[in-house]
Nucleic acid binder design. Structure first.
Length: 749
DNA sequence: GTTAGAAACAATCCT
DNA sequence: TGTTTCTAAC
C-alpha cells in the first residue's frame, strides 16, 4: 500500500519538532516506523541515536518488529520501549546518584497497599474515614504532577487534611526508600529528578537520543511530558503522534493539554493531520464522528474513508444481562459457523472488568474459545507473588515487604508476633528486616523461633549461591524443591491447588524462555520485565479466540467484528461520571465510546440490558445516552433509542438520584441461596488460548467430572469430532451441556 | 500459631 | 456477588 500525501509528508520530516494528529485507523504506526527507517537509510542517522517510546509493551514489540522488517541489520540498537521500561533502564544505571541502590525493587499496587496499611496503622488513623486507596491516590497524583513530598508540604500550608497527607506522603516515600523500592510512579518521577539534577547523566542521554518519537502522546502526564522534554532538550528532534479524541487516561494523570499545546511548547513545530481512515466502513465511521462531535474543545478533524457504507450497526436491547451475553455468544457462534468471521476476528468490549464474568460463562457453554484480557494479572496471583517475593528477597535483601511475605510461606512456625518483634528490632537499629533476621541472637525477645529464623536466613543465602552458580531457572527449581511449595499444593488435592501448580510451571517456563532469549540474563532484568507487563501484552495475534477486554485496553487495537456490551447509562457512561458535576468527565467517557466504536473494521454491535446484577444488587438502567447520539439511519436491531435519556435532558443532573435500586430479595421475595458448591473463585489456571496442546482427556464415558463453572456431573458421551473430543456432560446443577474437551477445563473426580 | 466460618465491605478505567 | 478481614476455637 502506498503512503498518502500527508503520511508522506510526515515520513519525510527530519529535523525539528513534529506533531502528527492521527485520527483513529489513519495508519500512524506505519508512518512512525517508515519515518524511523528513512532516518537511518536516507539521512545517515545512526540507529543508536533513535528512541521510540510507547505506553505498552505490546505496542513497543509491534513497533520493534515492523522497524526490524524495514531496517534489517542494525535495527537492534534502536531503543524501542515503554515509558516505564525506559526509565527503569536509565535508573538501573544511574539511580545510585540520587540515593537508591541500583538493584531496587519495583512495587506493584498490592505492595503499595501493604505499605500504606502499615503507615495508617502506625499513625492510628481511622480507616473508616480515610482509606488506604485515598492516600495512595493523593500520592500518585502528586508524583504524576512532579510534586515532591517537600513541595507537597509547602503547598499544604495550614490545611489540616493536606498536612496529614503531606506527613503520610513523606513517610510512605521514606519507607520505600528504606526498602530500596520504587513504585510505578517513582519510575518516571525519579528518572525526571535524576535527569534534572545530574548534568552528566542528562548530557549523556540528550546526546544519545537525537531523534525521539512518542506514541499516544495524548496520554502523557506531566511527569512523562517533562521526561520527554528533558531527553529531547538538546536536539529537539521530537516527533509525537496522538489523537486528542482518544485521550482516555485522565484518571491516571494524563494531561490532554500536552498535545493541545504542543505548538506552544515547541514553537516551530510542524503539524500534520492524518484524516483518512483505512480501518472502518463508512457507517462505523459516521457513528463514531456523530458521537464525538458532541464534545467541545477538540482539534477539528474530518475523518473520512473511501470504503463503502457496509453493514448497519446492530443495536440490541435485552431484559437481562444474562440474555445479552447469550445473544453475543450465539451470534459469534453462527457467524463463525457461516464462515463470515473467525473467532480471532471477534472482540467483546465492556466498560468494567466485572462484566466479563457473565460473558465468559455464556462463551463457555457455547463452546467458543476466548481469552479475557485484564482482570487479574498473571503476576498478581498469590502463588506467583510468593515465588517472586522469594526471588526479590534473593535479589534485594532490603525489600522488607518481600521478605516478610515469605518468611512464613510455607509455614515455618514464624507467626505475626515474631515478625512484629523482628521488625521492631530492625526499626530501632535502623537496619533492614532481613539483616535483623541474620542477627537473630541479638534480639532478646525471641527465643523459641530463633532457630527457625536462622534457618530461613541461611536458606536465602544458599539460594544466592545457587543463583550465582546455576542461573535463575536452576535456583528457582531448587527453591521450589527445598521449600516444598509445590509438594504442599499437590497434597491439597483440589483443582484450585492444581491450577496454582500449573501457574508456577508457567512461571518456570517464562524464566526458561527469558534465560534462553536474553543477551545477558540477570535476575534483576527478569524481575523488571515481570513487573512491567500489562494485561494487554498477553494478547497474541494470529490465535483463534474471541478477545474480551475493557474499552481502555482495546485502544490501539482493531477487530473485524466488535461488540460493545453494557451500553447503559450508569454503566457506560459510568455512574461516577453521571453524578460528577463536571462536564469534562462526560467528555472523557464519550471519547471512550469513540475509541470503542472505531475499533471495528466491518461489523459493530452495541448491546444493553434493562436489568443487571451488580454486587448482588439488581440495577435498572436506561439505554446509554451515547446511543441517542448516533443517527437512527445507521442502526438496525430491536434497540429503542427512545429508551435513552433524550438529548435535551442530558444536561439535567437531578435524575441520577431517581435511579432505582433494589436488593434482589425485595424484588423476588426470596432469600439468596447457595448454588452449587463449585468454587467459582478458583484461580483460572491458564487461558483457553494455551490449551490447544491438550491431548486425550483423562476422563471417559460414565466418569464423574468437575467443571470450574458448572460443578460436578457425569460424562454421558464422548465423540471424536474434527480435531477434538466433543464431550456431553450431565451436570448435577446445570443440566446437560455439550462442549469440546480442549476448551472445557474439566477434571475427573 | 493456625484455621475455618462469619461478617463486612466493595469495583470504574491502567502502567 | 466475590473478596477481604475479623473472630473464635483448636
Amino acid at each position: 500500500m502506498q503512503l498518502n500525501k500527508e503520511q508522506q509528508k510526515a515520513v519525510l520530516h527530519v529535523d525539528g519538532p513534529l506533531l502528527i494528529l492521527a485520527g483513529a485507523g489513519s495508519g500512524k504506526t506505519r508512518v512512525l516506523t517508515n519515518r524511523i527507517a528513512r532516518l537511518i537509510s536516507e539521512c545517515n542517522v545512526s540507529p543508536w541515536n533513535i528512541l521510540a517510546i510507547t505506553f505498552t509493551n505490546k505496542a513497543a514489540d509491534e513497533m520493534r518488529e515492523r522497524i526490524d522488517d524495514l531496517v534489517g541489520l542494525g535495527s537492534e540498537s534502536i531503543w524501542v520501549a515503554t515509558f516505564h521500561s525506559t526509565c527503569v533502564r536509565i535508573l538501573r544505571r544511574f539511580i545510585d546518584r540520587i540515593g537508591y541502590d541500583t538493584n531496587f525493587s519495583i512495587y506493584d499496587a498490592d505492595d503499595q497497599k501493604n505499605v500504606m496499611k502499615e503507615i495508617i496503622k502506625r499513625r492510628k488513623i481511622d480507616t473508616k474515614m480515610y482509606k488506604e486507596r485515598f492516600f495512595l491516590n493523593v500520592i500518585s497524583s502528586a508524583k504524576d504532577e512532579l510534586i515532591s513530598p517537600e513541595a507537597f508540604r509547602e503547598q499544604a500550608g495550614e490545611d489540616f487534611i493536606r498536612k496529614m497527607q503531606a506527613d503520610i506522603y513523606e513517610e510512605y516515600q521514606k519507607t520505600l526508600q528504606k526498602s530500596n523500592a520504587l513504585d510505578f510512579d517513582d519510575l518516571i518521577f525519579l528518572c525526571v529528578k535524576l535527569l534534572k539534577q545530574d548534568k552528566e547523566v542528562r548530557d549523556y542521554y540528550q546526546d544519545r537520543f537525537r531523534y525521539i518519537s512518542v506514541d499516544e502522546y495524548q496520554d502523557t502526564n506531566t511527569a512523562q511530558f517533562e521526561l520527554v522534554r528533558l531527553l529531547a532538550g538538546k536536539y529537539k528532534n521530537l516527533c509525537v503522534v496522538g489523537d486528542d479524541d482518544q485521550s482516555i487516561y485522565k484518571f491516571r494523570g494524563a494531561n490532554i493539554k500536552n498535545i493541545l499545546n504542543f505548538e506552544k511548547h515547541y514553537p516551530n513545530a510542524t503539524v500534520i493531520k492524518l484524516e483518512q481512515n483505512y480501518r472502518s466502513t463508512q457507517n462505523i465511521l459516521d457513528a463514531a464522528n456523530a458521537v464525538i462531535s458532541h464534545n467541545m474543545g477538540r482539534k477539528e478533524k474530518h475523518l473520512w474513508t473511501d470504503q463503502e457504507a457496509g453493514e448497519k450497526i446492530g443495536f440490541y436491547q435485552f431484559d437481562t444481562a444474562y440474555e445479552e451475553a447469550e445473544h453475543i455468544a450465539y451470534e459469534i457462534s453462527s457467524l463463525v459457523r457461516r464462515n463470515e468471521f473467525t473467532y480471532g476476528e471477534c472482540a467483546i468490549l465492556y466498560r468494567t472488568n466485572a462484566q466479563s464474568r457473565l460473558l465468559e460463562e455464556k462463551l463457555v457453554s457455547a463452546n467458543i474459545p476466548y481469552k479475557i484480557i485484564g482482570g487479574i494479572n498473571f503476576y498478581s496471583r498469590k502463588e506467583i507473588k510468593d515465588i517472586l517475593a522469594y526471588l526479590k528477597t534473593i535479589e534485594n535483601g532490603q525489600d522488607d515487604l518481600a521478605v516478610r511475605r515469605i518468611i512464613n510461606v510455607p509455614k515455618r512456625g514464624i507467626g505475626a508476633t515474631t515478625v512484629g518483634r523482628i521488625q521492631e528490632f530492625a526499626d530501632e537499629q535502623g537496619m533492614s528486616f532481613f539483616d535483623a533476621c541474620r542477627q537473630i541472637e541479638l534480639i532478646p525477645t525471641i527465643k523459641k523461633a530463633a532457630e527457625k529464623i536462622r534457618d530461613f536466613a541461611n536458606f536465602i543465602l544458599v539460594c544466592r549461591t545457587q543463583l550465582a552458580e546455576g542461573g535463575i531457572e536452576a535456583m528457582t527449581k531448587y527453591l521450589l524443591d527445598a521449600t516444598g511449595y509445590i509438594d504442599d499444593l499437590r497434597a491439597e488435592h483440589d483443582e484450585e491447588a492444581d491450577a496454582r501448580i500449573e501457574n508456577i510451571e508457567e512461571l518456570l517456563n517464562k524464566i526458561t524462555d527469558y534465560e534462553e532469549t536474553a543477551e545477558n540474563p540477570t535476575l534483576t532484568e527478569f524481575l523488571d520485565e515481570v513487573s512491567l507487563v500489562a494485561d494487554i501484552d498477553n494478547l497474541e495475534e494470529g490465535q483463534d479466540y474471541v478477545a474480551l477486554m475493557t474499552l481502555h485496553s482495546a485502544k490501539g487495537l482493531e477487530f473485524a467484528n466488535v461488540y460493545i456490551s453494557g451500553m447503559e447509562d450508569g454503566l457506560f457512561p459510568s455512574f461516577m461520571t453521571i453524578t460528577a458535576d463536571d462536564e469534562s468527565e462526560m467528555e472523557e467517557e464519550r471519547r471512550l465510546a469513540y475509541v470503542g466504536i472505531t475499533r471495528a473494521k466491518k461489523r459493530l454491535t452495541l448491546t444493553c440490558a434493562k436489568t443487571r446484577m451488580t454486587r448482588g444488587e439488581m440495577q435498572y438502567n436506561k439505554v446509554s445516552r451515547f446511543l441517542a447520539e448516533i443517527p437512527k439511519k445507521l442502526l438496525t436491531g430491536n434497540g429503542r433509542q427512545e429508551d435513552a435519556l433524550p438529548l435535551y435532558q442530558q444536561a439535567n443532573r437531578g435524575f441520577a438520584q431517581a435511579r432505582k435500586s433494589f436488593r434482589s430479595e425485595d424484588v423476588y421475595g426470596v432469600a439468596r441461596t447457595k448454588s452449587s458448591k463449585a468454587p467459582s473463585n478458583a484461580p483460572k489456571a491458564k487461558n483457553i488460548g494455551n490449551a490447544g496442546a491438550a491431548g486425550k482427556p483423562d476422563y471417559k464415558e460414565g466418569d464423574r467430572v468437575r467443571h470450574p463453572k458448572f460443578g460436578e456431573g457425569t460424562v454421558t458421551s464422548m465423540v471424536l469430532g474434527g480435531r477434538d473430543y466433543e464431550v456431553t456432560v450431565d451436570f448435577d446443577d446445570f443440566g446437560t451441556k455439550k462442549m469440546f474437551a480442549q476448551f472445557a477445563k474439566m477434571t475427573r473426580i
